[in-house]
Design a protein around this nucleic acid. Structure first.
Lengths: 114, 114
DNA sequence: CGGGATCCATCGAGATACTG
DNA sequence: CAGTATCTCGATGGATCCCG
């Protein structure tokens, strides 16, 4: 067992991850992007329940934090594609860990708070 | 690349994890518990800024979801210890993935939203 | 020691309508 | 097509005081 100072040093990077992907639609968006859905309207259709306002906001957050990038498909076309950056892709290992744990948890426990 | 239905099936278990550990103090509490801090007042002192109200609430959530357990230290002592259950401990692999990614992210990017 | 009860400010997020 | 602009409201969480 470690001393508490060392333990505490683990907290900020972990909270960074939660800040980056913890808001309501970030996981949906990242997974959709990883699944070859790239356009705003595609995302809006595929992510059930999201409003354009929230989609726009979440995309901006993700772009600001360099998890995704936004590129014009062809010059002056006014159509854009969103895609994961390398940082975004590297999140998959975190997702994999959460997925594995989450499935196991669902099988064994499943007492939801909400 | 997979079809989107398969992708989507990954979302709920991942969101479960975020629901379980995403609120403000959960990570702090779980890490403190994993670091041999077990008593209510110890937790309150070590987790800087938490109020007894929030500590109490978060502990109850975690207990309800079977990530921690609460045991009386000796009968009728009115002193309790909180500790991680097996499920709680198994979260460490998720934390490890987040920690690794988070440290890497801090080194390379660090544009915080807030 | 280990909490509970109340009150209150903030903020995340939904609904709806509109725009270049 | 790819977003903005308002308005609204419930949940989250802080502050403070109290209790057995």
């Amino acid at each position: 067992m470690k001393n508490h100072e060392e333990c505490k040093s683990h907290i900020p990077p972990i909270k960074d991850v939660l800040d980056l992907i913890g808001s309501k639609w970030k996981v949906d968006i990242i997974i959709a992007l990883s699944c070859d859905i790239h356009r705003f309207n595609e995302l809006e259709r595929q992510i059930e329940g999201i409003s354009p306002r929230m989609l726009s906001k979440e995309l901006k957050d993700l772009e600001l934090n360099r998890l995704i990038q936004r590129d014009e498909i062809s010059p002056f076309s006014n159509t854009f594609k969103y895609s994961l950056t390398e940082h975004g892709w590297s999140l998959r290992e975190v997702f994999r860990a959460m997925l594995t744990w989450g499935i196991d948890y669902r099988n064994k426990v499943m007492v939801k708070t909400n």
